[in-house]
Design a protein around this nucleic acid. Structure first.
Lengths: 165, 165
DNA sequence: TCAATACCATTTGTGTACCAACGAATGTGA
DNA sequence: TCACATTCGTTGGTACACAAATGGTATTGA
């Protein structure tokens, strides 16, 4: 099943038209375009599936909040923006996530004595306890997300996703 | 600069507990959990990469808006919720997307004469023209998103993502 | 040393994404 | 035919996600 249309199939039809009309070039592309075969759409659906499984198995935190808490527990005291970089969230996003974690006393903020722009985020005891409590579920969620795939396929998928950056 | 704190720094404190306490089982999971290896995180990062490439190459519409317009052009007149199902958006989400497409006169709505709850969404001439104009860029975006992978790897990734549903 | 630059956290605004609830309309089975 | 369930579109609320702008603060390099 050819998932990818090679250039050789795309270009000729465009070239052999004697006259260029309004949407000729694009009409061909439009006819060839199938939403359901595009990476972006498949990635979005896979993410949706994952998030659905996540919220069903772990309702205490959102996936994003858990990611931030987990990374913070892994790294120890970290500035807010640095935590954002480590969890692939921009400054505005990590702020909201950190605020919600702080509102629930899972994380505290301490001013950095050296750099007055920064404040460290630090997991509280409750935060570490919750992380420890939920890590098992999180691992199970990853497994369940990959359930439709064989062991070898799971490995392959993870390495290809990692390769994509 | 060590980005990742090795197990040797995390585990000992947890292991040397003589008696099993509250989170012992989960502590192990917590030590084993690596955010950067979880499907959900890799999917989110891959989606981010895709959306970044999308907006750089196609600024006229968001990826979601383009998906809805493309599907609508593919299907022809479709009820709003049905379009949502075809594009993996729930009723609330597709409403917002449809509203924005209608505000830009890329889509119109016609009442369904048979079912008075429904209204059909129909791409306008401008909508079809824009889709035709942008489909080529959309295909290019998919290719560029997959650029880090070989041809065989791209096929594999797409089929695995499709298999995950 | 001081001006240009970079970084930190924050704010505002827009756009997904999903839940829960709603009224209106349709479909179903006894 | 009539109660019941389902579907349609909508609304309100919360939570990411990112762009762009801002005011502090640090770094740098001439």
């Amino acid at each position: 099943m050819p998932f990818q249309i090679p250039d050789s199939l795309i270009l000729p039809a465009l070239i052999e038209r004697p006259f260029s009309m309004h949407y000729d070039f694009s009409d061909d592309d439009a006819a060839r375009y199938r939403l359901d075969e595009q990476v972006g759409f498949l990635l979005r659906k896979a993410s949706q599936r994952h998030l659905s499984i996540f919220s069903q198995n772990l309702s205490a935190l959102t996936a994003t909040q858990f990611a931030a808490l987990a990374k913070l527990c892994e790294l120890g005291p970290t500035s807010q923006n640095a935590l954002g970089r480590a969890t692939a969230m921009d400054a505005a996003t990590i702020k909201g996530v950190a605020d919600r974690l702080r509102a629930r006393d899972l994380v505290t903020a301490e001013p950095d004595p050296v750099d007055r722009r920064r404040h460290y985020l630090i997991p509280t005891e409750a935060g570490r306890a919750l992380y420890a409590e939920l890590a098992g579920s999180a691992l199970k969620i990853s497994t369940e997300t990959l359930a439709p795939l064989s062991d070898k396929e799971r490995e392959t998928l993870l390495s290809l996703l990692a390769k994509m950056g």
